[in-house]
């Protein structure tokens, strides 16, 4: 885990990331939830290198994933919602 949630009394919710259920806390962005659950990369570059959320404010586009079927969603800008389906975008 790269991150930990300070306030574990927050409401819990579940999102699915590449078919694996992950626990998130209400008020966390999807990117924060990934980094708190051992998901260490969000996309592959055209050259095949692993990339992970970097700026966490919407400027670097490293955290883009497919969310509920929509491609290239910046996961640092979206709050996690119960039942969300998140996938690594396969084609760069």
């Amino acid at each position: 885990m790269l991150l930990r949630q300070l306030d574990e009394s927050r409401a819990r919710l579940t999102i699915t990331v590449d078919d694996r259920p992950l626990q998130a806390f209400a008020g966390e962005t999807i990117a924060a939830c990934l980094l708190s659950n051992g998901v260490t990369f969000t996309r592959l570059t055209p050259g095949g290198a692993r990339r992970a959320p970097y700026c966490l404010m919407g400027a670097c586009f490293e955290c883009t994933m497919t969310v509920d079927g929509r491609t290239n969603v910046q996961t640092c800008l979206r709050l996690a919602e119960d039942g969300m389906v998140v996938e690594r975008t396969r084609t760069p």
Binding site: L2, L3, L6, G27, T29, S36, M57, C76
Partner: peptide, 13 residues
């Protein structure tokens, strides 16, 4: 800082 203020998360390690 964003993770702390926005999501309430801090580095675990």
């Amino acid at each position: 800082q964003s993770l702390l203020k926005g999501s309430g998360c801090v580095p675990a390690g």
